[in-house]
Amino acid sequence: MSHNSKILIIGYGNPGRQDDGVGVLLVDDLHEWAERSKLDFIYTDSNYQLNLEDAATISDFNLVVFADASKEDIRDFSMTRLKPSPVADFTMHSVSPAFILHICEQIFHRSPEAYLLHIKGYEWEFMSEPTAKARENLKKALEFIKDYIMKYSESAAE
């Protein structure tokens, strides 16, 4: 299946820090699914954290979903529409998705539709395997995002 809309899913986090890596794991699974299903309009990327060069990367896409682990008070996962934010709440070496979106607008004059997919995590130790609860949340988030992408692509094709 090919499509006019280009979709990018970016997972970020450290898979060596237990549940911190669920965003990256989601992208790994999604990449496999897109390849197997020959969905060539879906692109994936992952890194330890977001940084400014991601503003250049997302400027080429119509839809961007950032996938990350979350400590926040959510049930299992949540997806929220991102608005560009100029708030430079970044630490020395990483930035927020909303900030990336803002930089993309300011520098590259592009505004892809963007969402943040938060997957609830629980433990953050020096371990590769996420907790069972986080894995369960990851599974639910994966099914949700697959469905979302297919619906998005169908509506974009109309």
């Binding site: 400014l52 060069e53 250049a56 990367t57 930089i103 300011q106 520098i107």
Partner: peptide, 9 residues
Amino acid sequence: AIQGVMMRK
């Protein structure tokens, strides 16, 4: 700003 972003990239 563009230079900085693209050098990172």
